[in-house]
Each structure stands twice: as structure tokens, then as C-alpha cells.
């Protein structure tokens, strides 16, 4: 029982990380009509910047904002130099150009940091685990991730639903000319929005740093999972991204945790483990296929 709760929490923790990535990806797509493959690179950049600063200064409190700001800044540069030229293009051009960006960022990271993964300590004040209830203990750091992720989700909701920027975002998604008519510099709005998406990705990268190894290629692994989230949730919908992220996070974690022992009961030998590993890796993709069979536009499609 306690294992089940622990794994469920792990699932939620993966879910909030995926949400941070999916929210940016889906916002940028929904509003600017751009599919950005290099979104995963921003996650990687956030993680590397944090890891580098943390290892230099020894302080997570300095490293975390550094990672966030680096990802945001590089995101805005990316928008200014490349993405901006792609707004009026078809998806194919966008995919290929941002694929080029991935090649560049990945190899540049190899050039700067090498191929060996970087490791980051969990900050002292978030070390250890606490007793939740009964005999369920859970690491403080992971609880912190969940808390930060949920707070960000709430903040994002408030931003979109309650603020002037959010109003512009919503208006911009449906009617660009209207936003222009309001006298808003839409280019600036887009750059800012892209920066926001980049910072969300960077935040996920920063938080992942201490629990995953920080290495080249981490961006694409999570990017593809993020695509699954977005397809399941419905392209363009932030709420869909949240629901999709939670589903994918929990399902993926649960399969990885419990499929091997289920298989071991059904068959013997190392085949069971290998097969279980294969099926649990494929699980969320099958889930995606299932969702598409029932709802081709995802669970919560953004209208329009």
C-alpha cells in the first residue's frame, strides 16, 4: 500500500514536470502557431545552466534562478533570431528549422560540457524524507517539485484568466488583428510569451537536475513524452496539458513500477523483466493510441 502511494506521488511528480513543458509547448503552438521541437533543448539548457552554477558556487539558491533565466534568455534569443521568421511558414518548415536548432544546441552542449553527465546534489534544506501518514515516507525534494509545479500551474491559470497579459494571450490566439488594433506590439508580446514558455521548460530542467543525470539528449527524451501529453490533452489547451501530463506521469510511473512483478507472476526468467520493461516504455504511447481512437482531437481540445 505504501509503495502504491509512493509510486502515485512519483507519477504526480513526473506529471508536473511534463506539465511545465507541455504548457509552454501548447501555449506557443496555440497562440503563435509554431511547433517548436527545440522546446526540449530549453529544458536541457535550464538543467545544464543550473548544474554548472551549482557546481561552481555550491549554492542551489543561486543556481536555480540562473538556470531559469538562462533558459528564458536563450528562448527569447531563439524567438528573435529564428522562430519569428517561422510564424507564417507551414509546420514542415518549423519542424525542420527547429530540428536544426536541436542539432546545434546538443552539439554545442557537448562542446562545452562534454558527454559525461553532470550530477547535482539535492540542496541541503530539501534533503531527506518526511513521514506523510501511516508508514509512508516521501523525499522532501520530490514534494517540493510537486508543490512548485502545482503553484506554477495555479499561477499560469491566474495569469491567463485574470491579467491583462492573459487577456492579450487569449485574444491573440483567436484574433491577431484585434490585438494589433489595441495598439499592442504583437512582436514584443510573442517574444515575451516565448520567453515565458522557455522559462517553464527551464524550470522543469532545473528541478530535474538533482534527480536525473544532466546530459545531452535529455531534452529530446522528455520532448517526445511531452508530445504524447499534448496529443492526449488536446493541442493548444493548457488545461488539457495539465490533465494529459498527470495521466501520462502517473500511468508511465505505475507501469514501470508494477509491470515487472506482474509479468514475473505470469512467466519466468529474465524474459519477464525485458518484456515488462518494453511494455512499460510503450505504455503511454498505447494510451495515446487509445485516446485517439475515442477522441481524435484529444481529451480537451482547444476550440477553433
Amino acid at each position: 500500500m505504501s509503495l502504491l502511494i509512493e509510486q502515485a506521488l512519483n507519477g504526480v511528480q513526473l506529471g508536473v514536470m511534463l506539465f511545465l513543458l507541455a504548457a509552454g509547448l501548447t501555449l506557443i503552438f496555440g497562440i503563435m502557431g509554431v511547433i517548436n521541437l527545440a522546446h526540449g533543448s530549453l529544458y536541457m539548457i535550464g538543467a545544464f545552466a543550473m548544474a554548472w552554477v551549482a557546481n561552481k558556487t555550491g549554492s542551489f539558491l543561486i543556481a536555480a534562478p540562473a538556470g531559469l533565466l538562462t533558459a528564458g534568455a536563450i528562448g527569447m534569443l531563439m524567438e528573435f533570431f529564428v522562430i519569428r521568421k517561422l510564424y507564417a511558414r507551414d509546420h514542415l518548415d518549423q519542424v525542420l528549422a527547429t530540428f536544426g536548432l536541436i542539432l546545434f544546441f546538443n552539439q554545442l552542449t557537448v562542446l562545452l560540457f562534454g558527454r559525461q553527465p553532470l550530477f547535482v546534489q539535492i540542496p541541503g534544506f530539501l534533503e531527506g524524507s518526511i513521514l506523510l501518514f501511516g508508514d509512508v515516507r516521501y523525499p522532501v525534494y520530490r514534494i517540493a517539485i510537486i508543490a512548485v509545479g502545482l503553484l506554477t500551474a495555479i499561477g499560469l491559470y491566474l495569469l491567463i484568466a485574470r491579467t491583462r497579459l492573459g487577456m492579450l494571450i487569449r485574444a491573440g490566439a483567436t484574433n491577431r488583428d484585434m490585438v494589433r488594433a489595441l495598439g499592442v506590439d504583437i512582436r514584443l508580446l510573442y517574444t515575451a510569451l516565448f520567453g515565458l514558455g522557455a522559462m517553464l521548460a527551464g524550470l522543469a530542467g532545473v528541478m530535474a537536475g538533482p534527480i536525473l543525470s544532466v546530459q545531452v539528449g535529455m531534452g529530446e527524451q522528455v520532448l517526445i513524452l511531452t508530445f504524447v501529453v499534448v496529443v492526449i490533452g488536446g493541442v493548444g489547451s493548457v488545461r488539457g496539458a495539465f490533465v494529459g501530463a498527470m495521466i501520462v506521469g502517473v500511468v508511465d510511473t505505475m507501469l514501470r513500477a508494477f509491470l515487472p512483478q506482474t509479468f514475473r507472476q505470469l512467466m519466468t526468467g529474465p524474459d519477464a523483466d525485458a518484456l515488462a520493461a518494453g511494455f512499460s516504455a510503450m505504455g503511454v504511447y498505447m494510451l495515446m493510441a487509445l485516446v485517439l481512437l475515442v477522441k481524435p482531437k484529444g481529451l480537451m481540445p482547444a476550440h477553433g
Partner: peptide
């Protein structure tokens, strides 16, 4: 675009797991 990428990745993982 996303779904074809994701399904391809699924097959990738399948063969990685195919010890």
C-alpha cells in the same frame, strides 16, 4: 507530426527492450 514521432519512439523503445 507529433503522433508519428511518438509511435516511432514507441517502436524504438520496443527494440531497445527486446533483449
Amino acid at each position: 507530426i507529433m503522433i508519428t514521432l511518438a509511435f516511432a519512439q514507441m517502436l524504438f523503445f520496443f527494440f531497445v527492450a527486446l533483449k
